[in-house]
Design a protein around this nucleic acid. Structure first.
Lengths: 152, 152
DNA sequence: TTTCTTGCAAAGAGTTTGCAGCTTC
DNA sequence: GAAGCTGCAAACTCTTTGCAAGAAA
């Protein structure tokens, strides 16, 4: 079976780009931190552990490239920093996020909950939906059970 | 009947802030452009027409203040610029946006379509939803009917 | 050799902050 | 005259760009 990085390499080649060592290190960091929502700076610091000579600009350029090829999604939670999230393979639509306002943790929902909502938007507003961004702000389970009334 | 600006004035006073001429001009611009999603720079340029001596920093400070008081919502469509949107009076939740990828127009949906989705999130993920951000990307009605195949 | 890619430093865009002066109560 | 508010300029953060050098085909 073919590895994920192999398939990404093919995607790059298909678009006439190379998988340079710097790009490979960047992709590996994204793969190893698939659960997180890393900023460019985060990625840069992690890539530096594998490839100390890498520059921040290269990380930005690589992330831009991966976004263009739809290998990652560039997301923005409103804090002024872009974050990068590996797409699920085969997923054409974006997944949803739950952001806890107590602990700041970001969880993902992979299932698509918006089928009915999109139908309403299409029929009632004549708007053809291509993609959606849905983020919930609230309190996660572990913050609720650990008693958030003790928090400041 | 009390005007909208009067009510905002009271909200400010209630939180020990004054409705200065600069703040009033800023709020008026927001009221007059309620349909749009203005950036701080946009607001600044429009306020300048009413109060030429105003500084950009004051606009930023006013918008921050209004956001804090939940009179406006600060939103981010991922282009690196914050936009500001007057809240519907009485609305506790955020409304949704439809962004057309052809013409860039942003439409709003005031009705809340996420009741069922929130119930699923609460029961299945144990997450208590306080607010949500939902944006659709797609093609609006007028772009569809004006024949988007002629576009580049 | 030609093209792509990189690292560095500088530039850019958007936003925030320090501060002296001005209002307002 | 104390507290709040303003305009200006400088500072800051995140991101992009120009360019000379390096790597790959």
């Amino acid at each position: 079976m073919e590895s994920r990085i192999e398939r990404i390499k093919k995607q790059l080649h298909g678009a006439s780009y190379k998988l340079t060592p710097q790009r490979e290190a960047t992709v590996l960091v994204l793969l190893e931190n698939e659960e997180d929502h890393l900023s460019a700076e985060d990625v840069f610091l992690l890539v530096k552990e594998k490839a100390p000579e890498i520059g921040l600009a290269t990380v930005y350029r690589t992330l831009e490239l991966l976004t263009e090829l739809k290998i990652v999604d560039k997301i923005n939670f409103g804090d002024g920093v872009s974050r990068y999230d590996l797409r699920q393979e085969g997923a054409s639509r974006f997944h949803h996020h739950l952001i806890c306002i107590e602990c700041g943790k970001v969880a993902e929902i992979q299932e698509d909950l918006l089928g009915d909502v999109e139908k309403i938007v299409e029929s009632r507003y004549g708007f053809t939906v291509k993609d959606h961004w849905l983020t919930f702000h609230g309190v996660c389970q572990s913050c609720k059970s650990s008693g958030n009334e003790s928090k400041k």
